[in-house]
């Protein structure tokens, strides 16, 4: 027992140290960060945070990211739920190929694909809109959502479906009022993964936006000036990027512990 506890302490210290360092940096000016080594922040200042919350070009980045990430999570779930049901309950022509093809969409190296992506989305007049990034991120989030949801759905015995149909439920009514509540844990977990992967993706989001939908991760790289990076500001912005996701985890945490027990796994 104590060996287990020691292991956990070492691992979580390792996990928290870089985060602590980012937090320390965020409370200092760049001069004092580069000025010398110190275990805790000297000359504590909230100037970095104040700048982010008052400068429109900064906080709009957070708003843009939150808008397209939420859109993407909703679209991914709405599309993936019926598909995951189909994969978990029925066999149909090409089902296995379709499933693996979906996964292959995570495997393409982005660099060269960015140019045709830009061309495609400008043809549809979607450049610099939130929905463009939301749809582009579906490329890797929808397959993942289908995969995770399928696991959860296969854990629900098919007798439940059959009983409901015998009771005269139509498919949409059964799906919405019986089935979805049963797998709400899976939906919570899937929502977290969609949120996370869309939140941290940079290349597609940056390519498809110019100003009005620019994500926070792209805005951060602009702290680079002739004098070098503004490390303090960058660290404060980094700390703030964790907050929305941490809130999402907070809301789905119970699903991750108890709810998963419903999954087939």
């Amino acid at each position: 027992m104590s060996k287990r506890r020691l292991g956990l302490i070492i691992y979580f210290t390792f996990l928290l140290l870089p985060l602590y360092w980012m937090f320390v940096m965020s409370l200092q000016t760049t001069e004092s960060i580069l000025g010398g080594f110190s275990l805790w922040p000297r000359d504590i200042t909230l100037a970095n945070y104040t700048k982010i919350f008052t400068d429109q070009s900064w906080y709009s980045g957070y708003i843009n990211s939150i808008i397209y990430v939420s859109m993407n999570t909703v679209i991914s779930l709405l599309a993936a739920l019926p598909a995951a049901y189909a994969f978990s309950r029925y066999s149909f022509i090409g089902d296995k190929h379709m499933f693996f093809w979906l996964l292959t969409n995570r495997m393409a190296p982005p660099a060269v694909f960015l140019l045709p992506f830009f061309q495609l989305y400008s043809t549809f007049g979607l450049i610099d809109t939130h929905i463009a990034v939301a749809i582009a991120h579906c490329l890797f989030n929808v397959p993942l959502a289908v995969w995770i949801l399928e696991g959860f759905m296969s854990g629900i015995p098919r007798e439940i479906d059959e009983t409901a149909y015998l009771d005269g439920y139509s498919f949409p009514r059964f799906f919405l009022t019986v089935f979805i509540p049963l797998i709400r844990a899976g939906i919570g977990v899937t929502a977290f993964f969609c949120f996370m992967f869309s939140w941290v993706e940079l290349l597609l989001a940056r390519t498809l936006t110019t100003t009005s939908a620019k994500p926070i991760a792209a805005i951060m790289t602009r702290t680079q000036s002739a004098a070098g990076l503004d490390w303090g500001l960058l660290a404060a912005a980094g700390i703030l990027t964790i907050v929305p996701g941490a809130l999402v985890v907070y809301f789905v945490r119970n699903y991750m512990t108890k709810g998963f027990a419903l999954g087939r796994v």
Partner: peptide, 11 residues
């Protein structure tokens, strides 16, 4: 555990 996963990759 979720914290490192939520930081954009360039950051």
């Amino acid at each position: 555990l979720a914290l490192p996963l939520l930081i954009p990759w360039n950051v």
